[in-house]
Design a protein around this nucleic acid. Sequence first.
DNA 1: CGACTTGTTGATGTACATCAAGGTACGTGG
DNA 2: CCACGTACCTTGATGTACATCAACAAGTCG
Lengths: 230, 230
Amino acid sequence: MKAFRKFTPDELEFVDQFKIGELVAEEGSTVLTEGSNSPHLYTVLAGWGFRYKTLDDGRRQILNFVFPGELIGLQSAVMNTMEHSVDALSGMLLCVFQRERIWELFREFPSLAFDFTWLAAREESLIDEHLLSVGRRSAVERVAYFFLHLYDRAEAVGLTNRAGMPIPFTQQHIADALGLSLVHTNKTLRKLDQMKLLSWDRKIVTIKQRTALEQLAKFSDTKQFVRPLI
Amino acid sequence: MKAFRKFTPDELEFVDQFKIGELVAEEGSTVLTEGSNSPHLYTVLAGWGFRYKTLDDGRRQILNFVFPGELIGLQSAVMNTMEHSVDALSGMLLCVFQRERIWELFREFPSLAFDFTWLAAREESLIDEHLLSVGRRSAVERVAYFFLHLYDRAEAVGLTNRAGMPIPFTQQHIADALGLSLVHTNKTLRKLDQMKLLSWDRKIVTIKQRTALEQLAKFSDTKQFVRPLI
DNA sequence: CGACTTGTTGATGTACATCAAGGTACGTGG
DNA sequence: CCACGTACCTTGATGTACATCAACAAGTCG
């Protein structure tokens, strides 16, 4: 997949024995739990997931969605506690690594260590943009931005098709990601539909007028993040 | 300062020649600009700053505050573009590093590389919590949480005193950090003052009833993040 | 078939934003 | 010392974007 870089043979060998197995996570299951101290680190091989935090009274904030090629659990790997949970939206296939050996990775394979740092920095910048949305964009802008961004990421890993983007989640997830109520999210979606900019139909989202939507969303030229080869 | 870990002599030597100088940033000046490709990486030695993003119509979202001991510009160092700006709130003293040599650092000093990753992961987890606030907490909860969190971080680097926490910013900054309007931020502060939980007086903030405030804010047991020694 | 999940819509309520005005503290130059 | 400006905080009146509640329709799963 063009989203990934090439590895050298010895990197591959290390990754191969760093890996301790594969995990199939069922749709709706929780892969990692806030507050736990997971001994594992995962790479997503297939499927969708999402990271989130909750308040004790049940309010939930979805922090980001997780796509193939991304890492989950790095936080607990370097800090010894998970500060968020991860759920599987669709069935997911995960590649499992041993957390304890992360130190070895840093010592022996600086290029892989750099990848980790790069992924962490990229994740941070995604959340920064998301925070800007939730803090300063209106509901329509937020929804518009959200789907533009999501579409680009899904497309990059081949999760879109001619019809649009098949979506494994409900409007409640969108609401929880954008800091809106379920009802208002629905009304905002209907509005974008009436404007003929975006459609949501039976779990398929289609972007109908990309440029108009980008203007509405104040969509910043999202350069695809490419990890530099150094 | 107890917030920092000890370095080994050869780490110190490398850091010393990795460093290319010091920079004094004036109060109110911009240290890094969104969209630029800064050749430098900084460590904060003294003073306060903040990271933020803006929309073209001027709406601003403050992402996080920056304290001594923290790194700025790691994003541009690993990804070649800044996705946010950084301004100095007070006068700041920065230690400047050469970005190009970051690769050398990863190759020669895995322990320092690990520190970088650790700092990136910590920053991410701070923003996650902030996003939860902006997305799901009410205005009072947000303000309460904000000051509890800020106080702890300020205290960790010795920026508080018996009177409380001297604050180098205005209510507009708080509003921009919390996704509120200036006026509503002010009213919320007055409310917390009337409840005798928190006071804001001439740039000094005092937490008057810590536990009550924590309950109100749904303050999660913020463990001080301690970088593991591996 | 009912029970349940998901999407949709209208009526009502409220938390927040916006507007407008005034107050205090600090500076400046006369 | 004053008059004047400016930056920041404060408060009330009004407006609006969003939340909450309630009800129903359509699909889906036992």
